[in-house]
């Protein structure tokens, strides 16, 4: 029996076949999948904010920030037996759910999250093979470690796979 592993907001988890891994209701948040093409070990993070150095928290939730979440996901996967040279990534999210006249920084959080995730992946030399980012729609994503497809569902456009 295969299971769907659920990743919450500001959360990260690993998955291996036959299980799939999923996160629901991505708005300005970004869902990142890292997978090992050879071992099929996969992981997903639901990132809320770009930069942990901006945090005002006493205890840092590393899964919340792009920089720390990607690093932690990478470390967990390596510990699980993934090989750093065969890691690939796919990502989705970073939407602008509401449009406002004032262009304050908080409101541009989607694009900033996307940039921060790309940057963190680049530093670890993990190529992004597919992405579906930006726009105005919320997304629910599910990754299948066997087919390596990321299924993306939006409210009005149905499901696509990248």
């Amino acid at each position: 029996m295969s299971e769907v592993i659920k990743v919450g907001m500001a959360d990260l988890k690993l998955a291996a076949p036959p299980n799939t891994i999923r996160t629901s209701g991505l708005g300005s948040c970004v869902g990142v999948v890292i997978y090992d093409e050879m071992t099929n070990i996969s992981g997903m993070a639901h990132v809320m904010l770009p930069d942990s150095s901006q945090s005002k928290q006493v205890t840092l939730n590393t899964a919340k920030y792009a920089d720390t979440a990607i690093k932690e996901l990478f470390n967990k996967m390596i510990a699980e037996g993934a090989r750093s040279y065969s890691l690939k990534a796919k990502m989705a999210g970073g939407a602008q759910m509401f449009t406002f006249q004032s262009g304050s920084d908080v409101m541009r959080i989607g694009p900033r999250n996307v940039e921060a995730v790309k940057h963190a992946l680049k530093q670890l030399r993990i190529p992004v093979l597919a992405s579906d980012v930006g726009g105005k729609s919320g997304r629910t994503i599910e990754f299948d470690p066997v087919s390596k497809k990321l299924h993306i569902r939006t409210v009005n456009q149905g499901t696509v796979a990248i």
């Binding site: 629901s24 809320m48 904010l49 509401f98 908080v106 959080i109």
Partner: peptide, 27 residues
């Protein structure tokens, strides 16, 4: 109040936005 924005979408996706300034400080 700022001028309200309207969105017809998933609850999780729309709440992300309003939680941004809170999430910088707290879980």
């Amino acid at each position: 109040p700022t001028v309200p924005g309207l969105s017809i979408d998933m609850v999780g996706a729309v709440l992300n936005y309003g939680l941004m300034s809170i999430s910088e400080v707290s879980d």
